[in-house]
Amino acid sequence: MNDLAEIISQNEDRLRTEWIRTMSSSVERADLISKAEMNEQCGSILKEIVEGVKTSGPENLSGAGWNGTRELLSSISASRARQGFSPTDVATFVLSLKQPLFVLIRDKMGKSPDQLFETVWSSTRLLDSLALITTEAYTATREELIMRQQQELLELSTPVVKLWDGILALPIIGTLDSARTQVVMESLLQAVVATNSRYAIIDITGVPTVDTLVAQHLLKTITAARLMGAECIISGVRPQIAQTIVHLGINLEDVITKAKLSDAFGLALQRSGRAVVKTAAAAAANPLSGLFGKREE
């Protein structure tokens, strides 16, 4: 099928111009890419296609002759996936080569219908397969992006905050699965070392279910923190969670637990030899406070 290779290489300039023209009218976000870049990409793809057809034939896309095309298309699709092109745009990129190519084939083989049909057929199959390659690469890149975002979200969702000198808090929100625990543990241990903290409050108000797996993960985190010289306090243990933990038979005797984050903070302050006292100045600054009495206690 060297006819196809010949048609493409002999008319490369014309084909490229027509291809880009067809493409710009059907690809929605053609503006995302510069003309020069487009020209260069299309030129190299055409060269690679010629190489592929010559070396391995238009049918055998897994042949070594097609390596160049495959790599080029994959990397182009991957970068388009990152740039925000839609999957349709990426497939259209290759598919819009069809019409200009078919016109050329007709010009050359119009007199011999059998040959014309055969060449059009094999090039349509070829371009369809190439479009599939672009879609696959596109999807793979998007999946990678999603995975990375999930990873980033995981880290975002486990912030370690410094409440006071030597006292950290780690509010956990959502399910504490194994992947999450790993992130929680790492960020907590890192923060313990970086801030030289003696106390770490793990707040589980936002954890909907505490089952044996979650408990095991919490205990592991606490043990690791202890090895780094920090004592953990679990706060946000709601009454219904406390009851369930007891029924499950989970032993939290060695762990300090508090109902509220503020209680845990108070305890950590106290244990580190500090006390919170009300000053006269504060009372004066807020004259209304006396009217409502001591609400906190």
Binding site: T209, Q240, I241, Q243, T244, H247, L248
Partner: peptide, 15 residues
Amino acid sequence: VDQTKLVTAASELAR
């Protein structure tokens, strides 16, 4: 409390 018990049991048995 009962909701929590049910959900926790489901979590254990499903796992």
